[in-house]
Write a protein that binds this DNA or RNA. Structure first.
Length: 547
RNA sequence: GCCGCCAUAGUUCAAUGGAUAGAACAAGGGACUCCUAAGCCCUAGAUGUAGGUUCGAUUCCUACUGGUGGCACCA
């Protein structure tokens, strides 16, 4: 419909002698303004040297002719907006579509293969709420892209080598652990090792030596210990993914891309991309207005940046893609600029299709989180707390888990992904108002009504004036498309909250079963139910049957 | 010091350069003998400061103030 209106406006402008103008067809915030608003008259007025109102009147006449039966009203309002109200039948048609499995699905990316990397927790450290945030946003972005028709692969990159591992292993050995069997124990050992690294010269030397030994991989006993610890951490991560509803297609351990990273950097030195400085190999970013960063340390170990290069190639080898997205916290923005600039020097196409999507931090009102100081909030503890809170009102454990997860995910997805979330455990994880459970509750009510109805829904015998909820439902495909385009799930979250609010109003003001227009209201309820289900799926929020 | 991001109601967040700046929480008030009250209805309350561009600026530009992140061997 939007396309039809755009075409009609374009033709009308042509008729008025003002072609090729950048106008907008938008959804007005106020429903009194109709279903669509066009600002073309305001834009064209200047070019034509006429009063915007006159231009609007002329355009409105043209549009009325062009759109015919599909609109009931085309009017001029305000400074020269043209408001368009759709015909009853067009709205009903949209609702019928809203009953289908394909509702809201797009085709814009039908031929594309997109890899999305997210979560990225490091074994030997605990998964904290920062990783949780990455997972929640990443999963939703992946689903949005899938919904736009693309084939998506979810990737998880994790640091199973590097100084933090040496610190954790050193800590475990110092605590006399021979057989690590809990992620929490390893996390504590990491905190101890990390503190010692800064406080004790001796510990620092031992940890550095361990780090190099781990890269070499020649000490069999050490490697066996490393493998055990790694497995314990990774198993714990899988538990969390399962709870959250993410299934990764590909895993990229740093240990498997590190060697390639080193090789690539060494080749790059010959090509003049990298240079030696103070025993290390660096990328001189200053020439390009970026930072200069170390890619290979003076001890010969690759840094994060070098591994990033190896990773890019590894991904391409495992699953060739058209677009490769990487979600991480915003603190890494500078590093990605440098890493991608370096990659561009010798793998132009690969660098071009790779994009870094930064997200903000979960910021505690109680002070900064530090794994070194043991003040981190783990993903597991947050989930457990929230589920326990939901349990107070829930009918069973399964529902409590679904509600708890919804509360957490919604808290993350309700706002634009780039910004920090000010996390106050008391207030942020609300079960009421602007919250995940609010959406679930609206859905459950619709499900409940549909289950207890004895009649079938029908599109026949509709009231002449569509209910507000109908107009909202019809917008869903546009919302999903915009959220995908901007890679911002919050558009879906905002929309669903408005939709749920309108449904709740409708529910409070109308008797559905046994009321006037019962079959049509059931038809509306079914469309709402399906839209809410699809929308919640896009956010990765579970859909309970009852609450 | 240099570079980036941010600043909207008491609080936490929205608003492709457009119409009366939307929600939620907190505050105050209300309805309900009816399909789930994690709900509904009503009231009050906001664009950091100073300029600029524009028919029109929360949105774009400049400066300032405040916050936050990054800046060579962590990831």
């Amino acid at each position: 419909m939007e396309t039809r209106i755009k075409d009609a406006v374009r033709n009308a402008l042509l008729a008025l002698g003002a072609p090729e103008l950048p106008f907008a067809v938008e959804r007005p915030g106020d429903h009194a303004h109709g279903d669509y608003a066009v600002n073309a008259a305001l834009v064209a007025a200047k070019v034509l040297g006429k009063n915007p109102k006159e231009v609007a009147d002329a355009l409105a006449t043209e549009l009325t002719k062009a759109l015919g039966d599909s609109v009931t009203r085309v009017s001029v309002a305000g400074p020269g907006f043209i408001n368009i109200t759709l015909a009853r039948s067009v709205i009903t048609d949209a609702l019928e579509e809203a009953h289908t499995e394909e509702w809201g699905k797009g085709v814009v990316n039908a031929e594309k293969r997109v890899m999305v990397e997210f979560t990225d927790p490091n074994p030997f450290k605990e998964m904290h709420i920062g990783h949780l945030m990455s997972n929640v946003i990443g999963e939703s972005v992946a689903r949005l892209i899938e919904y736009s028709g693309a084939t998506v692969a979810r990737a998880n990159y994790f640091g199973d080598v590097g100084p933090h591992v040496a610190k954790a292993i050193w800590g475990l050995k110092h605590a006399g652990v021979t057989d690590p069997d809990s992620a929490a124990e390893i996390g504590k050992a990491y905190a101890h090792g990390s503190r010692s690294y800064e406080e004790s010269e001796k510990a620092k030397e031992e940890i550095d030596a361990l780090n190099i030994a781990l890269y070499k991989g020649e000490d069999r006993e050490l490697m066996e210990f490393w493998r055990k610890g790694r497995a314990v951490s990774l198993d714990a991560f899988e538990e969390v993914y399962k709870t959250l509803g993410t299934k990764f297609d590909y895993y990229f351990p740093e240990s498997e891309v590190a060697d390639d990273g080193v090789r690539l950097v060494q080749e790059g030195v010959e090509k003049g991309v990298f240079e030696e400085s103070q025993g290390a190999i660096i990328f001189n970013g200053e020439k390009r207005g970026l930072h200069t960063l170390v890619f290979i340390t003076s001890k010969g170990t690759p840094t994060y940046e070098a591994k990033e290069l190896g990773l890019a190639f590894a991904k391409e080898a495992r699953w060739p893609s058209d677009v490769s997205l990487i979600l991480t916290a915003a603190e890494q923005v500078g590093h990605f600029h440098v890493a991608l600039a370096a990659l561009k020097e010798f793998a132009h196409a690969l660098a071009e299709k790779t994009a870094h999507i930064p997200h903000g931090f979960l910021r505690l009102t109680t002070g900064k989180m530090s794994s070194r100081e043991g003040t981190i909030v783990t993903a597991t503890s947050l989930i457990n707390d929230m589920v326990a809170k939901a349990q107070e009102r829930a009918q069973d454990v399964l529902v409590a888990e679904q509600v708890g997860i919804a509360a957490i995910k919604y808290m993350v997805l309700r706002q634009a992904p780039g910004g920090d979330i000010i996390f106050n455990p008391e207030q942020s994880l609300s079960l009421e108002g602007d919250s995940g459970p609010y959406l679930q509750y609206a859905l459950v009510r619709a499900t409940s009504v549909l289950a207890s109805a004895e009649k079938e829904g029908s599109r026949e015998d509709a009231p002449a004036e569509p209910y507000l909820i109908e107009r909202l439902i019809s917008r869903f495909p546009e919302v999903a498309a915009r959220a995908e385009r901007e890679r911002s799930p919050h558009h879906v979250a905002q929309y669903l909250t408005t939709l749920a609010g309108e449904w709740n109003s409708f529910y409070a003001q109308n008797r559905i079963i046994g009321g006037e227009y019962e079959p049509y209201k059931l038809f509306v309820a079914r469309a709402f139910q399906n839209t809410m289900k699809k929308g919640l799926w896009l956010l990765g929020i579970p859909t309970p049957e009852k609450m």
